[in-house]
Simulated scan of single mutants.
Amino acid sequence: MVVRRPPARSRQAQILAVAADRFHRSGYHQVSMTDVAAGVGITAPALYRHFRGKPELLDRAVRLGLDELAAGLRAADSTAAVGAALAAVAVGHRPLGTLVQRDARLLPPARRAALRRELRADATLMAGVLRAERPELAGPDAGLLCWSALSACAGLSYQSAAPQPRRAERLLGELVAAVLAVSLEGTRTDPGPAAATAGAAPQPRREELLAAAVRLFHRRGFDNVSTDQLGAAVGISGPSVYRHFESKQQLLAASLVRSRERLWHEVEGAIAAAAGPSAALEAGLAAYVGFARRNGDYLGAMLSETERLAAPDRRAAVDFRRDFLRTWVELLRLVRPECDAVEARIRVHALFALVNDGVRNRPYSARPDLGDCLRRIGRAVLGVAG
């Protein structure tokens, strides 16, 4: 019997699907070409006949999802069709959100810039459809709503278990419709993220290093930050970093621990102090948005660098995220008893994704009313009244 080899195009699609799933689950740095080849059932040399290396694999995997998204948006003639296109890609290419938000920053600079242009073009297509239905919307407001819808759908990528596809598509379509219907009229200007106070007591060197590490690891990536750069950020030599931390990995772990302690203290404290579930959900939302505006680098590093931790520290970080999510899911179900756990998880993941992106997505992150905007959009995603 003659064994037919699959066509090259079919084999490439299989490789990209395996690569996207491995990158999504383990992180780009933790996956080798040999791992991808084993997942496909071929040898590493055979894999290199199709792709030159990991950067090309990541690039092509991201482009596959974005091309489908762009095609769906070009055909969309209503916000309902926009929601259907976003939901179909979020479900059909579930790793895409993680790859775009976490791993794509590791691509070569030219490809990163091209990816950003593609996403801007998608958002522009969405905004055109939205403003045709809501001509009263100013351009910046339409843009913020469209980026928030994109981020909310990407939240599905961070769920550990995939929900039933048809149900997930239907719910994400509803979430997009709710986001695109939000009114941003009369938003209130909030105090911006707190700046350093002149004359304030200087922080201990260890605390300065923790703050600098979160910022640099998020913006450049763990592997692209040297101890010399960490030391220079706080005015010391690179070797002096080791007086405070045994290794760069220990510094990463300590910086994430310190940040999540603050997150838990601020958000859980606001929830616990509120009278009743509805007030607690509103207080928690306000606290989370406020924390995110002041700590965007931590939220970015939490998503992008957790895989770089040693196994015990990684488990602690994952356990914290699971407990934090559970608190919100249970609270939302108290406020909306008709929501089952699956729907509540999708809504809460969407909330976290749109806030985490919103505080880091320029030029919208510079809006003086950003906090109020994100709270309004967050309520829409959770399905609760203001």
Score class of each variant (00 low, 15 high):
residue 189 T to W: 00
residue 163 P to F: 15
residue 97 G to W: 04
residue 198 A to L: 13
residue 136 E to S: 06
residue 259 S to R: 09
residue 350 A to E: 06
residue 327 T to I: 06
residue 266 E to M: 11
residue 64 L to V: 04
residue 37 A to V: 13
residue 189 T to E: 05
residue 322 R to D: 11
residue 46 A to T: 11
residue 150 L to N: 07
residue 372 D to E: 02
residue 87 A to D: 03
residue 330 E to Q: 03
residue 188 R to I: 01
residue 287 A to G: 07
residue 186 G to L: 03
residue 319 D to E: 15
residue 268 E to K: 13
residue 281 L to A: 02
residue 137 L to K: 01
residue 296 G to V: 00
residue 304 S to M: 04
residue 276 G to K: 01
residue 112 R to S: 11
residue 213 A to F: 08
residue 363 P to W: 09
residue 316 A to R: 13
residue 16 L to T: 00
residue 151 S to D: 12
residue 186 G to A: 10
residue 312 P to Q: 13
residue 361 N to L: 05
residue 79 T to R: 11
residue 102 R to N: 01
residue 218 H to S: 07
residue 82 V to D: 14
residue 143 G to I: 11
residue 323 D to C: 13
residue 165 P to N: 04
residue 74 R to C: 12
residue 231 G to V: 00
residue 13 A to K: 12
residue 79 T to G: 08
residue 380 A to P: 06
residue 231 G to L: 02
residue 369 D to N: 06
residue 178 A to R: 08
residue 5 R to E: 08
residue 46 A to M: 13
residue 196 A to H: 03
residue 59 D to R: 07
residue 12 Q to H: 04
residue 131 R to Y: 04
residue 34 T to G: 05
residue 169 E to M: 00
residue 152 A to Q: 14
residue 155 G to Q: 06
residue 154 A to C: 06
residue 83 G to H: 07
residue 182 V to C: 09
residue 330 E to G: 05
residue 171 L to I: 12
residue 312 P to H: 02
residue 322 R to A: 02
residue 55 P to N: 08
residue 262 R to Y: 08
residue 293 R to G: 00
residue 282 E to L: 07
residue 101 Q to V: 13
residue 39 G to Y: 11
residue 149 A to W: 15
residue 36 V to A: 14
residue 247 S to W: 08
residue 305 E to D: 15
residue 262 R to W: 14
residue 108 P to C: 08
residue 142 A to H: 00
residue 284 G to W: 09
residue 185 E to K: 01
residue 379 R to P: 02
residue 113 A to E: 10
residue 267 V to E: 08
residue 306 T to H: 14
residue 14 Q to A: 15
residue 135 P to Q: 07
residue 299 L to M: 07
residue 217 F to C: 06
residue 331 L to I: 15
residue 160 S to M: 06
residue 206 R to W: 14
residue 364 Y to M: 01
residue 147 W to N: 15
residue 17 A to R: 12
residue 370 L to Q: 15
residue 275 A to L: 12
residue 222 F to M: 08
residue 245 F to Y: 01
residue 380 A to L: 04
residue 129 V to P: 06
residue 178 A to S: 05
residue 126 M to Q: 10
residue 66 L to T: 15
residue 191 P to F: 15
residue 297 D to Q: 02
residue 14 Q to G: 13
residue 62 V to S: 09
residue 277 P to G: 07
residue 102 R to D: 06
residue 52 R to G: 14
residue 346 I to K: 02
residue 69 L to D: 06
residue 338 E to Y: 00
residue 136 E to P: 05
residue 315 R to I: 11
residue 32 S to R: 11
residue 362 R to K: 03
residue 347 R to D: 05
residue 298 Y to P: 03
residue 343 E to Y: 12
residue 42 I to N: 05
residue 321 R to E: 09
residue 102 R to Q: 09
residue 3 V to D: 04
residue 245 F to P: 01
residue 379 R to V: 13
residue 213 A to S: 09
